[in-house]
Design a protein around this nucleic acid. Sequence first.
DNA 1: GTGCTTTGTTTGTCCAGGACAAATAAGCTA
DNA 2: TAGCTTATTTGTCCTGGACAAACAAAGCAC
Lengths: 302, 302
Amino acid sequence: MNTANFNIAAVERDTGLSKDVLRVWERRYGFPLPERDACGERVYSADQVDRLRLIKRLMDQGHRPGKLIAAPLEELNALAPRRNRLAEVLPPANDASELEELLDLIRQHDAGGYTQAMQQRIARQGLQRFVQDTVAPITWRVGQAWESGNIEVFEEHLFTELTKRVLRQSIAALPGGKRRPRIILTSVPEEQHVLGLLMVEALFALEGAECIPLGTQMPLLEIARAAAAHQADIVALSFSVAFPARPIPGLLQQLRGLLPASMALWAGGAGVQRTPAMAGVELLHTLDDAVSTLADWHRQHP
Amino acid sequence: MNTANFNIAAVERDTGLSKDVLRVWERRYGFPLPERDACGERVYSADQVDRLRLIKRLMDQGHRPGKLIAAPLEELNALAPRRNRLAEVLPPANDASELEELLDLIRQHDAGGYTQAMQQRIARQGLQRFVQDTVAPITWRVGQAWESGNIEVFEEHLFTELTKRVLRQSIAALPGGKRRPRIILTSVPEEQHVLGLLMVEALFALEGAECIPLGTQMPLLEIARAAAAHQADIVALSFSVAFPARPIPGLLQQLRGLLPASMALWAGGAGVQRTPAMAGVELLHTLDDAVSTLADWHRQHP
DNA sequence: GTGCTTTGTTTGTCCAGGACAAATAAGCTA
DNA sequence: TAGCTTATTTGTCCTGGACAAACAAAGCAC
């Protein structure tokens, strides 16, 4: 069963490590050292792919490959996410045990139970508190679990998919129609996380804004075109914590230049925590920031 | 403004042409022939990237690069999608004008009007006919418009986002709970189109199956793990028409090897139209195929 | 003409091994 | 400790060669 083999393209696809990296690691560190097929091409085993994925995960937490590849299996102890430079921006939340119960439903692969539990929480908390006190902290917990290897990839996918559904359903139930301000919600290419966008969409819609959801990964030129076509008041972008911090200022600057000055540009999400302030761009570091910035807008546009 | 420059990685990202392809085209055809920076690395102009994107679009329609690269600009006339080998699998639908009206709402950027019109159609047609007679043909039309350059990228994004919402909402309204068969729904890495998955999820759920939606882009090993963890009866994959046809057989073969023999593997979507039949994999060429294959399953598992 | 096989061409992907700059760590000084 | 300078690590790009799968063209039987 575990006899499946992977060629180098398949490994790139499944691990996110480029062919160049795979070859140069082999040359430098002697790992992974795949078999060769009749034509001399690399053939990786499923075990090697697994190990590569583990290494990749630890690298995303700030470890460096040279050390990881040498380590035999005590990497499991290297669990300590050494991303200390920006430690723990979110508190573990107040009703931790209830959130853990929700997560356990995911770990037990009980899709129906999870959905039901989430819907009960909406009914109990109302949408705004649900977003802020349930969705945000549980998403943070999933992120932590991912970093420490305590959740399977497919469990994380199931969590995301089900949570998206619950949020979208609640948003659909809100009154729509032409309202103000009109806000374009999207993300830049390479940024495909959508939960943050949905959370903020729910909050904005609750405050009476008209949200235009364009999904993720919009080229900058297209964002500008969409904003003009929809006569938007605000363009709001989301950057997840996984998005590389370095290119963000340049991206925002470039987009700022493409938009008319009268149009506001807001950027939020865990990814902009490290982004320096800049003229013409509003940085929303928390969901509370988002709500209060929208309130400010209303005050300035009576 | 058009002074923006691209390195080879950016071109790969924006065009979908691999670095290897870009280099080998330069070697063989002399196009694209990028400038070089101080370090001798390729620097592509925005014009070249535009032209590459056009070429890629035409290639996806069945043209071959050798011819396209030579042609000066009469490619615009080569618009004729010569995908005749499997021509027009979907009819333009019976109530063409109504569908065009829906599309016009998107073109007018009337998000609310589109959503409302779609919901009316669900109420009138019922979910099954809505999926088959509205969502499928309108998606096909959007694809056509995209191929002929008659729709903006951001309009296509808006269409996708709104249609996803309507479908998800309808699916959520269906009865859930433990039912048979249990079907994992997902797509392979690099395949991020989700509409096909949602359509088939709606149809399967209507027929009493328990669908486990895992979103898109699951590594093959994770699909196998998820299937085992959820004790799935069937793993269903979706391949959009945009997915490169060549790697599909290998992917299916590989996944087939990772799954226990008792577990069915179904692959559907416009992307598998050109895929040859293979043992152990059920190819669902149309939505009708999907429904009838599920009916067959029920007959064989009383 | 149509349907099939064989032959030639096109095209994408892989390989090796070298080079270099950006990112990071280590060492040093004030 | 903070800031600077030097070393090491690491990812990405380069060239140019090779080959097999996909495709088109040519040949042949019917």
